[in-house]
C-alpha cells in the first residue's frame, strides 16, 4: 500500500496542533480588490462557432454579498485585416465560422470592453497545420489481480512524429466505441482519457517519433466490434501553459507550500485566449 502526499500528514499534524491558536487577523492592510474581466476562449479551424466566455472576478475580503457588475460588454476579434464584432449570448459571445474562418498560422487579437471602464485583450497565433504521421499498435496483456484473478487487457499505444525545428505542444484525448450486437444502433461510448499524460511538449524529442499515449482497457470479449477514436491537438504554448498550471494549481491553502497561480495571457484581465488544430485517428480493436 503506498501513501501519496507526504506533505499531507505533516501538514495536518501541525495544522491541527495549531488550530486552537487562530483568530481573525487585525491591524493589517489587506490587498485591494480590483474588478477584472475573466475571459476564456479556445479557437480552432475545426470549430464552426468561435466562443468567448466572459465573467468577472469576485472579492474574497470584506462584504462578499457585493456582486460586481461589469456593465454592458462588447467583444471584438481581429485577424489583422479586419475586425469583427462578436454576438452577445448568455455566457459570453460567439462568432460563426461563416463570418470569420479561423485559419492555421494566423494571429488573432481579442478585446472585450465594458461601459463601466473594464477592458481586457489578448492575442494568440493558431498553430500551423502539420503532418504528425499517427500510428497505433495494439497488443494483448495478461494482468493478475489478487481479487479478480487473471484478466485479459488490450494495450494500445499511439505514436506521432514531432515536427522538427519548432516548439510543439500537444493534447490527446481518446474515446472508446463498443458495438454490442443486441444494441447495435446504440453503441456504448466512453472516454478513456483525462489525466496529465494527455499533455506533452517536444522538449528532448524535437523531430523524433514518440509515443503520444497508451491506453489499457479490458478486452471486449462479448462485443461485436470496438474502436478507439484518438484525438490529437496541436496547441499553442498558452493552451499548454494554462492547462498545466490548472493541473498544478495551488491556491495557497497549504501554508507550507508556495501558492501556484493560474496562467493567464489576458492583458488587463484574467483567463485564457488560446488556439489549437485538431486531427484524429480511428483504431479498430476488434
Amino acid at each position: 500500500m503506498i501513501k501519496k502526499g507526504v506533505a499531507t500528514p505533516i501538514t495536518f499534524l501541525l495544522f491541527f496542533a495549531l488550530i486552537s491558536c487562530e483568530r481573525e487577523a487585525k491591524n493589517i492592510i489587506l490587498p485591494e480588490f480590483r474588478p477584472k474581466l475573466v475571459i476564456t476562449s479556445f479557437i480552432s479551424p475545426s470549430d464552426t462557432v468561435l466562443s468567448v466566455s466572459v465573467s468577472i472576478n469576485n472579492r474574497i475580503y470584506g462584504d462578499l454579498g457585493q456582486a460586481e457588475d461589469p456593465g454592458n460588454l462588447k467583444a471584438y476579434i481581429s485577424d489583422g485585416n479586419r475586425e469583427y464584432e462578436l454576438e452577445k449570448v448568455a455566457e459570453g459571445f460567439k462568432l460563426s465560422s461563416d463570418e470569420m474562418q479561423v485559419l492555421p498560422g494566423q494571429r488573432y487579437n481579442l478585446s472585450v470592453t465594458g461601459d463601466k471602464g473594464l477592458q481586457a485583450e489578448a492575442f494568440c497565433t493558431v498553430p500551423v497545420k502539420r503532418e504528425f504521421s499517427p500510428e497505433a499498435d495494439t497488443s494483448k496483456k495478461v494482468y493478475y489481480d489478487a481479487y479478480q484473478g487473471s484478466m485479459n487487457l488490450l494495450v494500445t499505444r499511439v505514436f506521432l512524429t514531432d515536427f522538427p525545428a519548432e516548439d510543439n505542444y500537444y493534447r490527446f484525448g481518446c474515446k472508446m466505441i463498443l458495438y454490442d450486437p443486441e444494441y447495435y444502433f446504440n453503441p456504448y461510448i466512453t472516454r478513456i482519457s483525462g489525466t496529465a499524460s494527455d499533455f506533452a511538449d517536444d522538449k528532448g524529442k524535437d523531430g523524433e517519433r514518440f509515443m503520444a499515449n497508451s491506453y489499457v482497457i479490458p478486452y471486449p470479449k462479448y462485443i461485436d466490434s470496438a474502436f478507439l477514436v484518438f484525438y490529437y491537438q496541436s496547441t499553442d504554448k498558452a493552451y499548454y501553459d494554462y492547462h498545466m498550471s490548472l493541473m498544478k494549481y495551488s491556491g495557497g491553502d497549504n501554508p507550507f507550500t508556495e501558492p501556484s497561480p493560474l496562467f493567464s495571457n489576458i492583458s488587463g484581465g484574467l483567463g485564457i485566449f488560446a488556439s489549437y488544430t485538431l486531427d484524429s485517428l480511428v483504431i479498430r480493436l476488434r
Binding site: 469576485n58 484525448g173 461510448i189 472516454r191 490548472l246 483567463g271 489549437y276 485538431l278
Partner: peptide, 30 residues
C-alpha cells in the same frame, strides 16, 4: 496573499462523453 477569486474553465473536447472512470480513478480536476 490572494487578491480575488474567479471561475476557471478548461478546454475539453470530450466533455460530453460518458466518463465512468472519474469516480473510480479520480481524474485530475483539470
Amino acid at each position: 496573499l490572494p487578491l480575488s477569486e474567479y471561475y476557471a474553465e478548461p478546454h475539453d473536447l470530450l466533455k460530453d462523453v460518458h466518463d465512468p472512470y472519474h469516480y473510480y480513478n479520480g481524474f485530475s480536476e483539470m
